[in-house]
Simulated scan of single mutants.
Amino acid sequence: MDPGALAGDVGFLLSRTSGLVVRAVNAGLAGHGLRVRQYSVLVLAADSGDGVSQRDLAITLGLDPSQIVLLVDELQAAGLVERRPAPADRRTRLVAATARGRRVRRAAVEGAHEGVRRQLGALSDEEQETLRALLERVVATAEPEP
């Protein structure tokens, strides 16, 4: 089907590209038992050292806090993350990668990158870097969600 007027619509193109990349990355992560959103939480938890709050995960990933709870529950059930009390506020729970979670994260990164490369293969390395830089700027300057 011809997308017609949507063919030049930036919102449509971003959404469609996102869907294509997510499917390709999910395929690359499947062998590690992960999907894109789980992988994103695992990366942030593994790279945070002492852990990251579920609230900060929700803000960074642009997801509803209830979605983060479910993702963390799945990762915890798989033994990839754990919830720890925050040293400064024992009411806050931090999500931290377990040793197994850090190993899975290191092993899964290539599958994630391969999925992106597969979908962006029509672009040169320079074009991919330009796209990445533009998207980073959009995300960095976005207004907070209400």
Rank of each mutant, 00 (worst) to 15 (best):
residue 113 H to K: 14
residue 120 L to W: 04
residue 36 V to L: 10
residue 30 A to E: 11
residue 21 V to L: 09
residue 35 R to M: 14
residue 51 G to A: 09
residue 142 A to W: 10
residue 4 G to S: 10
residue 118 R to E: 12
residue 131 L to D: 03
residue 136 E to F: 00
residue 23 R to K: 12
residue 145 E to H: 08
residue 3 P to A: 08
residue 100 R to Y: 02
residue 132 R to Q: 10
residue 47 D to F: 01
residue 144 P to D: 14
residue 124 S to F: 00
residue 93 R to C: 08
residue 80 L to M: 07
residue 41 V to C: 07
residue 65 P to M: 04
residue 2 D to N: 13
residue 20 L to H: 03
residue 81 V to S: 08
residue 27 A to S: 01
residue 121 G to P: 04
residue 77 A to P: 00
residue 44 L to S: 02
residue 120 L to A: 12
residue 27 A to H: 00
residue 28 G to R: 05
residue 24 A to D: 04
residue 126 E to N: 07
residue 33 G to H: 00
residue 36 V to S: 09
residue 145 E to Y: 12
residue 100 R to P: 11
residue 131 L to H: 01
residue 132 R to W: 10
residue 32 H to T: 14
residue 62 G to N: 00
residue 131 L to C: 03
residue 14 L to P: 03
residue 72 V to E: 06
residue 110 E to L: 14
residue 85 P to K: 10
residue 42 L to E: 05
residue 9 D to A: 08
residue 56 D to L: 11
residue 97 A to K: 08
residue 20 L to C: 01
residue 140 A to P: 06
residue 13 L to H: 03
residue 57 L to K: 04
residue 16 R to T: 07
residue 10 V to A: 13
residue 64 D to V: 11
residue 10 V to E: 09
residue 38 Q to R: 12
residue 26 N to F: 03
residue 121 G to D: 05
residue 38 Q to V: 05
residue 92 T to P: 03
residue 81 V to G: 08
residue 1 M to E: 11
residue 68 I to A: 06
residue 23 R to L: 06
residue 139 V to Q: 11
residue 137 R to H: 13
residue 109 V to S: 13
residue 132 R to M: 12
residue 59 I to H: 07
residue 88 A to Q: 14
residue 71 L to I: 10
residue 49 G to Q: 10
residue 106 R to G: 12
residue 101 G to P: 00
residue 37 R to W: 00
residue 33 G to Y: 02
residue 126 E to T: 15
residue 97 A to D: 04
residue 63 L to V: 13
residue 15 S to F: 07
residue 100 R to D: 11
residue 98 T to V: 05
residue 57 L to E: 02
residue 55 R to S: 14
residue 80 L to Q: 02
residue 39 Y to W: 15
residue 9 D to S: 07
residue 55 R to A: 13
residue 16 R to Q: 08
residue 69 V to Y: 09
residue 73 D to G: 05
residue 143 E to W: 09
residue 89 D to I: 01
residue 95 V to I: 08
residue 8 G to N: 10
residue 86 A to P: 11
residue 124 S to E: 01
residue 108 A to F: 08
residue 55 R to W: 09
residue 21 V to M: 04
residue 69 V to W: 05
residue 135 L to D: 06
residue 82 E to C: 07
residue 128 Q to C: 13
residue 60 T to I: 15
residue 146 P to Q: 08
residue 69 V to G: 14
residue 31 G to C: 07
residue 102 R to T: 09
residue 68 I to Q: 07
residue 88 A to Y: 07
residue 140 A to S: 13
residue 93 R to M: 15
residue 4 G to W: 00
residue 128 Q to M: 06
residue 31 G to Q: 06
residue 130 T to P: 01
residue 98 T to D: 05
residue 84 R to M: 10
residue 13 L to T: 05
residue 96 A to M: 05
residue 29 L to E: 02
residue 75 L to A: 07
residue 139 V to T: 13
residue 65 P to H: 08
residue 17 T to A: 15
residue 80 L to D: 03
residue 107 A to H: 13
residue 126 E to K: 06
residue 70 L to C: 15
residue 71 L to S: 14
residue 74 E to F: 03
residue 29 L to H: 03
residue 63 L to S: 12
